[in-house]
Structures are given as structure tokens and as C-alpha cells.
């Protein structure tokens, strides 16, 4: 049960959150301009980093906001959490 600091609500148990996968994946502005392989890269390919990872979480049973978490995927230590578009906050 991780302890995750929601940028709006503060530290809460993991069971209040939903995981959303890798952060910083933007939907292409013009999907038609992409080759099938490029589209597949957006759609399916993931860095799946071992170690420091940027990922998004949703405070589903709280404020229902999505936010960014910097977490180590080996130690599970959380370095910081951010609003989708904002300043970091250390746990």
C-alpha cells in the first residue's frame, strides 16, 4: 500500500488512487500524418523504465484529479508529485 501525495488532498493510501501509466505521452496533433508504426508507438510502445519513472495517477476516490508522480519502479520510493501542469511537491 503505497502512500501517495495528492497535490490537492495530501498524502493518501494507494487504494484511493488509480494508476494511469507512463506520463508525458501526448496525443499526436495530426494522427493522419503519422505512419502506422508511428501511430503504434504512441498507442502501444512504452518506456517501461526500471528505476526513475514519471507516471500519472488519478485520485479516484478523492478529488478525481490526475497528476504526475515521479517514482522509482524498483524501490517504489516517490520522489515528487506534480499537478498535470505544475510545480513538484516532495512527499
Amino acid at each position: 500500500m503505497l502512500l501517495i501525495e495528492c497535490p490537492w488532498c495530501g498524502p493518501r493510501d494507494e487504494s484511493e488512487f488509480a494508476y494511469g501509466g507512463e506520463a508525458d505521452i501526448s496525443r499526436p496533433i495530426d494522427p493522419d500524418a503519422l505512419s502506422d508504426a508511428e501511430w503504434a508507438d504512441y498507442l502501444f510502445m512504452r518506456s517501461n523504465r526500471k528505476g526513475e519513472n514519471r507516471e500519472i495517477w488519478n485520485h479516484q476516490h478523492g478529488c478525481r484529479r490526475w497528476f504526475v508522480v515521479e517514482r522509482d519502479t524498483v524501490s517504489y520510493a516517490i520522489r515528487a508529485t506534480f499537478p498535470m501542469d505544475g510545480e513538484g511537491r516532495s512527499p
Binding site: 494507494e14 501509466g21 507512463e22 517504489y76
Partner: peptide, 13 residues
């Protein structure tokens, strides 16, 4: 477990 993890352990819930 919901999150990505290479830690060979998950959450107790």
C-alpha cells in the same frame, strides 16, 4: 498490482 514495478513485491491490499 496496478502500477509498474520491478520490485518483485506488490501492495498488501
Amino acid at each position: 498490482d496496478a502500477y509498474n514495478g520491478y520490485g518483485q513485491r506488490g501492495s498488501f491490499h
